[in-house]
Amino acid sequence: MASDNWRVNTLHYWHVKTLHATSQHDKNATYKQKKAMFKKPDILQLIFIFLGGLLLLFIIAPIAGMLISTSPIEVFQTAADKEVQSSIWLTLWTSMAGVIIFGLGAIPLAWIFARKKFFMKRLLLGLINIPVIIPHSAAGIALLGLVSRNTMVGGLAEHAGFNFVNSPAGIIIAMAFVSIPYLLNSAIDGFTSVPEHLEKAALTLGASRARVFFTISLPLAARQIFTGLIMMWGRGLSEFGAVVIIAYHPMITPVMIFERFNSFGLSYAKPVTVLFICICLVIFVAMNIISRKKNARTR
């Protein structure tokens, strides 16, 4: 919160400054405004900047420290390690698969929550956030209870020829379980923000309900849904607690980091960690750029 305030305030300041500095008229007002800004330092603003700065430092320092203290050579060597490569690949694809498979259910559910009134809706809205608030190891235990071999679901899976425990399927459901609320909440907000009269208008123009959903509701909620998908993916691929209980092997990267730290120590765990952080950062920056561009097009 504090860091947000700091950003908003500074942004506002720069906005005011650049906007007025470039326009020819109104210079006088700009001058006065600037003068007012420097003359009377807003104490509250200073406190916010200080607190916000501390918080930013708290977020950035550990990551930056690790990046600095790890030699690039070690990182490159780790990247060449087949075991690491397959682990990172496993993490990326399982998290993505979780997003796609569970997104197929989450998006329609979000639309129902946003548009329909029904019995116990508020309770259900609360329930979908449970995965966020329970310890993730507990989530893993709960899921294991559902899908282990001696349960009905586990038995059915075995019949179908696969297993949840210690398999990519297990990893996918563990990741999806803890990350689905991010997508749901964001998509519900997205659909709620679509004006209902636009959907009604489309219906009166002869569009079927399905066409209205795909041509009106979904595109207009797309930005928030996309944000939700990214959040879900990010949350999924960083999951450790729930995954480690269902599937220690095959080893996703968060588990591998833990294992290397546990068996060989900090310096051995660092290169994998740095590599994984870098890959995640590149992906999220890229996603953000795509989402901005999309945003600019629909606005």
Partner: peptide, 25 residues
Amino acid sequence: GLVYQTRSLFPHMSVFDNIAYPLRS
């Protein structure tokens, strides 16, 4: 045909696509 009082054009489409919308069904 129902024309609402509030703006009910689809904001993510061009004017052309808005007008063509009923025909595309």
